[in-house]
């Protein structure tokens, strides 16, 4: 495998989306290519940072309530009500 092919597979390797065959070839390439290995490590780290550092918000209770109501009142169209903050 050449570096450009490895780069093509890089994201899928990070996300565990490679087929067995691709995975084998990719792993073999990494063993002999420090540059791609470094890039692979960086890509994994970037993913990890996003997962760790992106704040997850909770939907406001008012929103949850209005959606529960919406589904409880059937398919009735809600009025253009101002949202509660």
């Amino acid at each position: 495998m050449k570096c450009d092919k490895a780069r093509e597979l890089m994201s899928a390797a990070v996300d565990g989306e490679l087929t067995n065959r691709e995975n084998q070839a990719f792993t073999l390439h990494l063993q002999e290519c420090p540059a791609c290995t470094a890039e692979f490590e960086e890509a994994k780290k970037t993913k990890q940072i996003i997962q760790e550092k992106i704040v997850r918000f909770k939907a406001p209770q008012s929103l949850i309530n209005s959606i529960m109501e919406l589904s409880l009142s059937g398919t009735k169209e809600p009025s253009d009500s101002p949202m509660i903050d």
């Binding site: 994201s11 960086e42 996003i50």
Partner: peptide
């Protein structure tokens, strides 16, 4: 999707 993820993560790394 693959290539956008690849390029996107690279760009993001530079930003970070």
């Amino acid at each position: 999707v693959r290539s956008r993820l690849y390029r996107g993560r690279k760009l993001l790394r530079v930003q970070l």
